[in-house]
Amino acid sequence: MIDPVDNFEIPAEWIKRASIPLDELKLRISSGRYVLLSDGSLLRRGFTTGTTAAAAAKAAVLSLKGDISELSVPTPVGIRVFLPVHAKDGKASAIKDSGDHSIDVTGGIEIQAEAKENETIIIKAGYGIGSKNGKPAINPSPMRQIEEAIKEALLETGSRGALVTISIPRGKEIAKKTLNEKIGIIGGLSILGTTGFVEPWNEHLGETKEELIEKADKVVLTTGRIGMRFSSMLFPGYTVILIGSDISRGLAAAKGEVVICGLPGLILKWANPDILKNSGYLTIQEMIDANQENPVIDRALDEAVRVSGKRIVLLDRNGTIFRDTHERNINPINPDGTL
């Protein structure tokens, strides 16, 4: 069984642990709305601002011919999704559904669209959508998604084009709770979404990582977004923190049980900064691709366990486990530096 959003091949063991019938599980997974975790439980994905804006834009165009209360829109990963909307006389709104995302400051926001007949398709950013370097903060993937949704509406209504203005009434207010200003986006929120779906976990990109780590009884420290996604699936019940290269800082803050999980690059470089010296390889991934059994990899992994005293799980980019030290007998280094 393949998760159609991230193309992850779901292990058979996870499927056996699911509490719902197989046919129903397949239906839920194929919809893109659900993620199966390693313990057999399911979490619900939400929709991005891009998907929500696409729904509002399509509804606005359709409502030039009649009222609309529900419709479907395409997503960048090729899955069609249905959203409730409120649309009448060329004005429409849709509410962003965050699914089971733990902390989504944009959850529940209203995205509005207003459509007017036009010779071609023109998409404008209105109030509450931020800008960066003078350009609307609508990323390319959701912009294409919005345009495709408008094209569907035009095909259905027989119209030639539409001028659609998208706005977020509380955009400026909500943007203050995000990192937008720090990355140069001013005046509102971004319209985002490479898949059309919001994963059902918090990526902890704020400035409270140490506090979150300290409070967690069980925590996974992960190095990137791929690690974030699959760690959340592999370790239900754990708080998963995206720590990047600051593994030592994360370990220092931790009070409870800790697992380090992610792609090999940052983890092995953290354990052995000179791992590539005189190796003939430019990256750790290149080293792994050449020989997955290269003893240099395991020596660096053993060093990581000795230094941290923690379980370390290295992942391939497709989410499969490349190395897991759970069964390895390695003596950690004591705080005074002795074995």
Rank of each mutant, 00 (worst) to 15 (best):
L163K: 12
S167E: 04
R328T: 12
G262I: 02
I121V: 12
N278G: 05
F8V: 10
V61W: 06
I122F: 10
R144C: 07
P84F: 02
I288C: 02
L301G: 01
G227K: 00
P200F: 08
K176H: 08
R28I: 03
A175T: 00
A153K: 04
A254M: 04
E203C: 05
G158F: 02
G193Q: 08
E207P: 06
G161K: 00
A55W: 00
N334M: 13
E152P: 00
D289Q: 08
T48M: 11
D97R: 02
I321Y: 08
I213Q: 00
D289C: 02
E181L: 11
M287N: 06
T157L: 08
P140D: 09
E207V: 11
M287Q: 03
I129Q: 02
S232P: 03
G108M: 09
V313W: 09
T239N: 05
P264W: 05
D67P: 14
A57R: 01
S102L: 15
I10L: 13
E117M: 14
P236C: 00
A162H: 03
G309F: 04
K215V: 10
L62F: 08
Q292G: 15
S248A: 15
T222P: 04
V219W: 04
R225Q: 15
S41H: 10
K182I: 00
D217K: 14
W14H: 13
G337F: 03
G196V: 09
L155S: 15
